[in-house]
Amino acid sequence: MMLASTANDIFWMSRYVERAESLARILGAARRMSAIPQVLGDETNEWESALSAAGQRQAFGEADAPASEKSVFDWLAFNDKNPSSITSCLRQARFNARAVRPALTTETWEAINTAWLELKRFSGSSGRARDYNQFLQWVLDVSLKVNGSAFRNQLRNDRYWFSRIGVYIERADNTARILDVKYHVLLPEHSSVGGSLDYYQWSAILRSVSALTAYHWVYRQSFKPWLIADLLVLKEEMPRSLASCYQNIATYLDELALAYGRQGPAQRAARNTHARLRNARTEDLFQHGLHEFLEEFIAENNKLGMTIAEQYNLV
């Protein structure tokens, strides 16, 4: 049993920290890609891809500037007026955390509060230009500390489970978006083209979910686009894959149901999605079209968030 408003704040705090981390990974991968000589490429602009992966292309478009490293970093990393920037996410996470401080461990609270204090170092025109890499690394560290401290010290009760559910719903959303932005380079017929550009594109996808090394350990062969899709959608041992996210979501929702002595539509929906991902084969992903599959998944994942909110009075 916990206050519904506390559950809501915890859920969103976790989502915002996870979102900040995901944005940092997307920006990191884009930086890497943008360093590839244009000779290899067509007109693809990595910075536009980064905006798309973050679901920010339209919002950025209204800012009316060409997508470049500086303009995209300004928008996705530092812009206080963009509610989906890294700094806004961390600010919002701290706001949620402060409202429910007693529900967090001291270490988790201090990790978020310290991040919020340090944020000042990076904001303002003076600080930000210096070192993008340093900033991105810092964001990853913050997320690591927030999650690690909860993993290490937090009581395993509904507070913890709601925070985990928030993390995995957000993560599933992010992985699906990253894949969807580049789905065209993952289509099987694309492989025949297979130039160096593809190689870089594939590695960029893997990088943005920290799966570059994992790919080689799992498949022990050179990049095959369908294997990349397989890894990020269906492989449960890959922590940022959709299957792994849903394994976790289903588990934590079941813990809640067990503790509360009652199941509901959220448990059923999560278990269904998880079962579908577990039983699917790689071919199935492409049969109906990868893009369609991902779009559907993103919508379903969103809906699960709302079902949870309804079932547990969060709204």
Binding site: L3, A4, S5, P102, Y260
Partner: peptide, 23 residues
Amino acid sequence: VELVEGRDLFVRDDELFMRTTEG
């Protein structure tokens, strides 16, 4: 104990309740 705001509470039949994840 829980930290509550007004919006977390309501009154029914002269008893005070807080809104929780379990009702």
